[in-house]
Design a protein around this nucleic acid. Structure first.
Lengths: 344, 344
DNA sequence: TTGTACGCGTTATCAG
DNA sequence: CTGATAACGCGTACAA
């Protein structure tokens, strides 16, 4: 129960506390014989280092906080995985909090992180309306890096990709397939910056292709299978329904494809569906999903690397890295047929 | 940078440290006026409670450690989600580590958790060969609960389900569909107890139905889409290939279905595929997957509840809860046709 | 190579 | 209701 302390080990060994401490952190400063003796004793007594006391004494922690919208939904799992591994490699633990896309939850988490004096924080996206909190956080000395977004005019470090460009490309691709009414099912762009930027990319591509923007064709929803399905159902029940639907996440796309099937529509013969994320499953589903590949894992890894540099003071200024995305063409989209109105 | 401390707040307020502390933890013991004054001051000075120091002083932490095999793979995400929410509700933070199904990684994580003197630990499964470590852990005073498994003769608390029974039922169902050669694609049962129990359930159901156990029909692999696909390909290339395949996880099942499709086989017309987990996606894929529903989220929630009881000393003895599973019949399995040998 | 001694920011125990 | 003060377990100058 009551664990043995360094102090006690020292006493047992007839050494000072400092020597025992050095045994752990700077063994090269200890005479090999002593080292051996102390180690043996620690093993024998079942000594376990107290990281809390250590962190406290050193006045810095070795845990990194991570904020993600949701632990479900595969795609964040990928960046989280990247974060995990890199952090482990660098000797940091992770404390993870999910917000459920809720601003208040995020604020609460952020406070918790401050209370724990975490070494650094990785934010998924840059909450609209939370600029102040985050700036204050940084000013308070906790290094921060944002993933999944590129930030303009903000002193923050980030490693992201252009949500605008990615959405633009996919929409443009759909237009190149001769689709003129392109639906858009998107996450909560009112609150989430990266979703908003995807909307902008979509609109921009429409414009470039001389296509009108039809507000009724864009649906804002939560990025779940269920919502994707329901949104698609709405789109399909329109009198002049879209011939292609661009979903703001693969989850939404899968839900959408499911809705199409239920309605007796074939993808891509009767309607094209494109996704965003390229989660593993996109390549294995039926039909395989055309989607935007996002460097999720890499973002996670690089975010940790940068964060650790900041933590260790090797880097003072903010790092800004923008990774490329890529359209992965599989089988869920195809050229629009003239007169493709199918029985509904 | 250097945050203000309780001490300083006390000085500023002309009060004692103790009173300020009480302001936070037992406001009812403080005169309303004083309370108000202190709170105002804390807000003004941007005081942020130091949870590390608090935990250290109190000699217990308010962080729960969670060990999962992988952050990818959807299904653990569900139990993790349950854990998250419940923990948050109870005022605990989470530190999450993933092992990648690797025993050494798990041990390392466990050590880290001990070093941080975490309040409690939730293990996913009960690593074969790690009995000692875990028992020592418990003896050292860290409450532990295992999820995803039911444990026999072990002093540990758990909240799980019968992997044996679940696999038995599904196999039995497949047999009732007149399948006589039932393939099994399973996670690493050599190392993972719950996978091993699924294998046992499968064998037992075979026996009950008078079916021979054919070792070549069971494939041990990692539970990923890719491995599911490859395993299925192997199964399908056999001269006397199975007419139904039971996958030990939905991921494997999706991979398997993909392999079947690539070979020109239709599911379920040409071959039946069943999964295990019932992740969200199972209901939305094509065809919708027949699978075993596992109470993932509930396991997570209940595990936290039990753990917190243990932490707070309300419960001394181990709690053992077994949740039910259920077969969800969708469209990926059907009765075997006589003479169903299709062109391969 | 080793030891001494102080500090880290709270909590908790006693008095008042 | 409030105050003093001793822990808590370790890191780290500074000395020896």
């Amino acid at each position: 129960m009551a664990r043995i302390t360094m102090q006690q080990i020292a006493a047992l060994a007839g050494l000072s506390l400092a020597t025992v401490s050095r045994t752990i952190h700077s063994p090269h400063l200890v005479k090999p014989g002593t080292l051996e003796q102390v180690r043996r004793l620690m093993a024998k007594e079942g000594y376990v280092y107290n990281a809390t006391a250590g962190d406290f004494s050193r006045r810095r922690s070795s845990v990194i906080g991570v904020i993600i919208p949701t632990t479900r939904g595969a795609i964040f799992a990928n960046s989280t995985q990247g974060i995990q591994e890199k952090a482990q490699e660098k000797g940091f633990s992770l404390i993870i909090g999910s917000t459920g896309y809720d601003a208040e939850a995020e604020l609460k988490l952020l406070l918790q992180f401050q209370e724990r004096r975490l070494a650094g924080i990785i934010l998924t996206g840059y909450g609209i309306g939370r600029e102040n909190v985050i700036k204050e956080l940084v000013k308070s000395g906790i290094p921060c890096v944002v993933v999944w977004e590129v930030l303009k005019n903000s002193g923050l470090s980030f490693v992201g990709f252009s949500n605008f460009q990615a959405a633009f490309s996919m929409t443009d691709y759909l237009a190149s397939l001769n689709h003129r009414r392109i639906g858009l099912i998107l996450g909560p762009y009112s609150r989430i910056g990266r979703a908003r930027r995807r909307l902008e990319g979509y609109r921009s591509a429409l414009q470039k292709n001389g296509l009108p923007f039809a507000p009724e064709l864009v649906i804002e929803t939560m990025p779940t299978l269920k919502d994707g399905k329901e949104s698609m159902a709405r789109l399909l029940s329109m009198s002049d329904r879209p011939t292609a639907v661009f979903a703001g996440s693969d989850m939404l796309a899968f839900g959408a494809m499911s809705a199409a099937r239920e309605r007796g529509l074939r993808v891509p013969d009767d309607i094209s569906v494109a996704g965003f994320d390229d989660i593993d499953f996109a390549a294995y589903c039926n039909p395989p999903l055309t989607t935007v590949r996002v460097p999720a894992r890499e973002m996670g890894e690089r975010a940790v690397s940068i964060l650790v540099e900041m933590i260790e003071g090797k880097s003072r200024k903010d790092r800004r890295v923008e990774l490329p995305t890529e359209i992965v063409i599989r089988e869920s989209c195809r050229e629009r047929k003239e007169r493709s109105r199918v029985k509904t």
